[in-house]
Each structure stands twice: as structure tokens, then as C-alpha cells.
Design a protein around this nucleic acid. Structure first.
Length: 183
RNA sequence: AGACGGGAGCGAGCGGUCGCUGCGGCCGGUUAAACGGUCGUGGAGGAAAGUCCGGACUCCGCAGGGCAGGAUACCCUCGUGUUAAACGGGGGAGUUUUCCGGCAAACGGGAAGCAUGGAAAGUGCCACAGAAACAAACCGUCCCGCACUGCGGGAUAAGGGUGAAAAGGCGGUGUAAGAGACCACCGGACGUAUCCGCAAGGAGCGUUGCAAGGCAAACCCUAUCCGGAGCAAGAUCCAAUAGGGAACUGGAGGCGGCCCGUCUCGUUUCGACGCCUAACCGGCGCCGGAGCAGUUCCGGGUUGAUCGCACAAGAUAAAUGACCGACACUUAAAAGUGAAACAGAAUCCGGCUUAUGGCUCCCGUCUUCCG
RNA sequence: GCGCCCAUCGUCUAUCGGUUAGGACAUCAGGUUUUCAUCCUGAAAAGCGGGGUUCGACUCCCCGUGGGCGUG
């Protein structure tokens, strides 16, 4: 779990400090980072060998599954109504989290943006940001209860890092993520 | 050259990483699918918006006709379009407003606008003001009488005043004063075997002194057209439960008819009852009708699913995204901002309207400079 | 998505094409009261926006804006 978390943090840093990173900060997390870049390069070069990525011994387990296919989404009105009826919710700055637990739990996501958020463009944007933020943290969650995220209006003007940290804080309060994150 | 306004067009580039989704190929998987992997390929707009008009399409209704209700309304031509409905461009006619010329009116010219059939088919309305709003004498002018500067009767629509609108306008003749009463010019109305124009219409000619206004985006009349609802239309599949129909089976019960017995009182009618049994049962007859349980089938179609639904977008709590780089701008730097505005498909198509940063082009107005 | 309705003072509402757009509650000022409430008097306060028809538009017509309702 902790490995995944550090990997996310590194991934963020990786974007920001790309130029000066390669030589200096090698010592601690060298192995994973190296293998990732190596894997990426290899994938772009040779698509045929990318199928063997799962068998790569260095980072096979730690390669984050960031996918969020449609089967991992809440898709029926009944599921949403059950989530609201169970009345377990956590309120964040940019979103409200509802938890739904039932026999068909699969850590599925439902995204809601009401008309109070704005017009159709704003609602679509809010839903995309929530979906994207959840997609990035989904592989860290060991729970399997379903989740409904309701967008608040402030998410439109928020910067992306704040949205991510707000989602993490909300998930910690709900018990989906371990309490203290270290990086 | 700049600013402002209007119109038309374009409406956003490159590379990388992580993701979503449709289709196709291959591989895995499966009875077949679902599903997974990989490769290729596609993935928001000029308005997708508003829902203001239409059409395709679907279901319901439909013997024929009428009423009610609704829509449209000058002419020619071209274009888009499913050659449908509508819409747009150009030209013309008419008309309204405004500007210029004109003493003024008429008229001529320019610009802008017009949902532009009909006002002698009928009804209605035209507030206030004004004497009078479709019928008229308040002031004024003139005449006559009384009378002595006022009253009464009459003539008069030139002038004043009111109003959005008051007998077509200017000039003249004429008159008691006036008046199309009469005349010239202009205008109007009506008619047209003429001329021009495809036509709307215009010109000319003739008649008429011009008894009559406006509103039909008031009712209405004329002509043409319109059945209703809408993809949440509609079609298909269908678990469980309840209810509906049909068939079969089951056990018992019930109903009616006749007969028997008992009861009340001698008989008859009527009525009630049918002891005794673990339970049912007086006897005979009839299942005509109704109902119960079980099984099977049919019908209905709630939850849900699929189709409708897309010949290069095609979802169904609804994909088209997030991050980074290079680059550009601001800043001393750190750092920040960024492909920008309006805004995101939901059956499809055409039109209209509205919103819109930036760039390009065109038109108009104003300012500055030069000639 | 589709279909439909509405818009008038701060709020709720009237209004036959002719007004200074009426009423109630609320607000403000004055009066009454020892004071407050009640009561009395007075004031301020509105036609969703843009066009068109008309002599004249809240009213009639068109286009937009903003609300609301129904429908599986």
C-alpha cells in the first residue's frame, strides 16, 4: 500500500522536476523509476513485447492499474437511490461523497453534477474532473464499497492539485485510504 | 490611419504519458456469448442552445360532408432543399416615416421600414377635448326682424378654436357673406375594344365637382391549406407476485323439482325441520347455473433488457478527458497564464432566432493627417 | 428529450386599447398613548427586454430573457 502511495507522489514529482531528476535524486527510488521509464520506452518502441509487461519482475505488481472501465461505474438509478438512502456521506471542499454498500459491491463510481453546478459544459467538466481524480487513486483503495461523488460548484474554479488532495482527504475520512500519508 | 456600429467567413496548432468509447482484424476465453489483450481506425458545434416554424418517421383514428378552431396572404425571378414545407437573395409595384428642393399644399428626388387580400357585406370602437367623430353652427362673417347695441330667425364650412383625425390643395371668378357654386393647375374616385409591362401595376383617355375618415396584429368576409399525438412515439423479450380467461382432474357441497316422515289443530295448502353418526347421509332425479383446490395453456405487460438509434460521433447517471513538454506572453526573478469567447450531441434533416473572445474581408458613421 | 403555462410596487394580487396603473400586507414620516401595541392621516414604491400594429399598448402581434408545471 505504501509503495503505491509513494509511487503516486513520485509520479507527480516526476512531471514537475523532469529535467533535473535523472541524475541527482536517484538513490532511494531508483529501481522503480528506472524500470518505469524503461518500460514506457520499450512500449513505444516495440508494441509486441508490451504483452510481457505483467511478467516483468521489477515492477510487475507495482504497475498501477489506472483504468476505470464502464463496468466500474454505477449505472442504474436504483444504485444511486440506495447510496442516498444509506445516508453515509462525507463532505469536502469540492465534492460530497456517498457510500453504498450492498451484496454487489465492486468499488464502483457514480458521478453526479446537478443543475446548481452550472450549464451543461460546467456539469460535464465537473464530472470529468471527479472521474479523473478517482481514477488516479482507485488502485490504492482496498475497500470495495461503491462510491458516489457529487460535485459542488467550487470545483469549477479549483486548481487540479487541490481537487486531488481534497479527494484524498475525503477518502481518508471515509476509511477508504489509510489515515496518514507519507511521502 | 484610428475608434465605433452592422454583415459574412474561420472558430484553433505540434509532441509525449495515463485514461474513456464505437467499429474492424488477430489472439485468449466461452457450448455460444459476455469478458480480456493487442493492432488499425473513428470520436462535439456554428450555433449541438432556444424550441419559434416545418418535414421525415411511428402509433391511434378515418363512409361522406359540415361547424368550431388554427395557419398563410402584393408581383416576377433565382437559389438552397427530400424538389416537401418553409426560408433566403435580386428586381419591381404600392404604402408609411424622415431628409432635401418647393412660400405652402400637391409634387419630384434620396434614405430607412413594411405579417402589403378586403373598410359601398355586416357588426363594433374612435377615450379626453371639441358645437359636431359620421353627424353637426361654439366663436366668427353676412342678411332680416324686434330692439338700441342686446335678443330672435335665417344663410354660410372661407377663418378661429378642439383633436391623431373635421367637406382635397393653391390661386382666381363669384357672392350679402361664403361655398367645387364656377374656372385653370395638381390630387382623388370610377371606367377602360388604347399603349407599356410576364405580372403586381403604370401611362393615356373618358366620366365624376369629389356624400366622404380611421382601425381587420377588433369581430368578421374572401382565397388556399390543416385528423390527433409525439422517439418518454412505438415494437420485441420477460422472472416473481396478485388478478383475468380456457381446458382437464379432484373431492365434497350447494340449488331446484317430485315423493316420504315429523311438527302446529281434524283435513288440504303454506311454512319449518330430517333425530340417531367419528364424518356424511330420508329416497329418486338433474348437473342447468355459481363457486373451491391443483395442473397445463392463453392473454395482459409492472421492474428490467433489446430494438427504434445513424452507410466515418453514437452514449443511455450518457464517451470526446487529465497531466507534461516544447512554444508564446507578463515579470528583475521565483513563478503565473494560455489556445482562449459563446458554449457541449441524445431519432434524423431543413429554416429562423439568440449568444459569441480573436483573426480576415466588406459596408456605414465620426475623428486626425496628407494632397 | 417532448409538450405546456406564467411574468404588474419589497410580497400577494386587480385592471374592455384611452389612468396620475387600483387594493391589501410590509416600509417610512406624523398624530393618538406615560410608553409599546392597536387605531388615524400621509408619503415613497411597479408594467421582464426589444421591435411592430394603432392617434394612443400593461392590454393586440412577433422575437428574445427568466421562472414554473406535466410526461417513463
Amino acid at each position: 500500500m505504501r509503495q503505491h502511495g509513494s509511487l503516486i507522489g513520485l509520479q507527480r514529482k516526476y512531471g514537475y522536476y523532469e529535467t533535473g531528476l535523472s541524475t541527482i535524486k536517484q538513490e532511494t527510488a531508483t529501481q522503480t523509476r528506472f524500470s518505469r521509464t524503461d518500460g514506457n520506452r520499450r512500449r513505444t518502441q516495440d508494441p509486441g513485447e508490451a504483452t510481457s509487461k505483467a511478467a516483468d519482475p521489477a515492477n510487475g505488481l507495482k504497475s498501477p492499474d489506472q483504468r476505470l472501465p464502464r463496468s466500474a461505474r454505477l449505472r442504474s438509478n436504483r444504485d444511486f437511490q440506495e447510496a442516498y438512502a444509506q445516508r453515509r456521506r462525507v463532505i469536502g471542499c469540492y465534492m460530497v461523497l456517498f457510500i453504498r454498500s450492498g451484496p454487489d459491491n465492486a468499488l464502483r463510481l457514480g458521478v453526479v453534477a446537478s443543475r446548481r453546478v452550472g450549464n451543461a459544459v460546467a456539469r460535464a467538466r465537473a464530472k470529468r474532473r471527479l472521474r479523473e481524480a478517482f481514477r488516479r487513486v482507485r488502485h490504492d483503495i482496498r475497500d470495495n464499497r461503491d462510491v458516489v461523488l457529487v460535485a459542488r460548484r467550487s470545483i469549477l474554479r479549483a486548481c487540479w492539485k487541490n481537487v486531488e488532495s481534497d479527494l484524498q482527504r475525503v477518502l481518508q475520512k471515509a476509511g477508504f485510504l489509510p489515515g496518514k500519508r507519507r511521502d
